[in-house]
Design a protein around this nucleic acid. Structure first.
Lengths: 148, 148
DNA sequence: TCGGCATACTTGCAAACGGAAGCATGTCGG
DNA sequence: CCGACATGCTTCCGTTTGCAAGTATGCCGA
């Protein structure tokens, strides 16, 4: 009643916590990927040349650079991403999605897709889901580096 | 275009990450409270007798019981909450909001309120914010234990 | 009544994270 | 040219978190 802004924020925080728990469990058991790892790979997949600098990845994921550095290590070891240097600037280290990585992303995104739709089955119309997506998009756009 | 559900989830995850970073910093510097700590105290504040069992707190916050146990310890040391036992069931340990705690919650919620509204200033109408709150509410209601 | 199961909480351990410091590299003004 | 600052990444350290095991207590059917 009093404050819709506060209410929206509180609900958003709560929904996210529940989604993260559920989705991480689902993705981990099926594809051996954490939710944040998948988000990272998804960002790479839609980037030009399927590669990104670590700084930009951090911004796109709204996380710290150090986390990106650490998260990439295991992904590199299992061959989903590779390291690439920039000829012009020796400071930057690109993270590139490998072909194997692309396959895994495609598979995992399918699962993510199904889990997402499962959240809205029953009691939701297509328009309502679309409205929610639009509103959240407007909320995220003023923030740095977005994904979808 | 293709899948509004997936898009909504992706955007929600991103918005939450940004909000958590920003709000935690704001709350921490002003009130010395983390965002999750404040959410815990807010739940207590609106509970009957301003007290809750740890299990219910965990469910309401969508986090594990062990996290609640540990998060309560510092809050107890600085006197914002107190420990209370149940006469009928020696297993349960209530977490009670103290008077000091109530004051801190009131102050911190005011800050949280301002930060929430700041997210929507410019480019948002009151109806749009309300719609977002409603949709998120429907998304969180099927999940266990909600707050606002 | 009592043995087994469920519930509430705590603790040990490992994983994930952010911030600050450190290092290498690039840029720019004098 | 070069000193000072900026940028990109990595590493160290402390914090937060979940899971699983452990403990204590309550419940219930044979």
């Amino acid at each position: 009643m009093t404050n819709a802004s506060l209410s929206a924020v509180l609900r958003l925080l709560r929904v996210q916590a529940a989604i993260e728990t559920r989705f991480s469990a689902g993705l981990g058991s099926v594809h051996g990927l954490g939710l944040t790892e998948l988000l990272l790979l998804m960002n790479l997949d839609r980037a030009p040349l399927r590669r990104m600098r670590r700084v930009d990845l951090a911004a796109a994921l709204a996380m710290s650079q150090s986390s990106v550095t650490r998260m990439v290590l295991p992904l590199e070891k299992i061959g989903l991403v590779a390291r690439e240097t920039d000829q012009r600037d020796a400071r930057v280290g690109y993270v590139v999605l490998t072909d194997t990585g692309r396959e895994r992303v495609t598979e995992a995104v399918a699962t993510l897709d199904q889990m997402s739709e499962a959240l809205f089955v029953d009691r939701w119309t297509g328009d309502e889901v679309q409205t929610l997506a639009d509103l959240l998009g407007r909320l995220s756009s003023p923030l740095p580096g977005a994904l979808a």
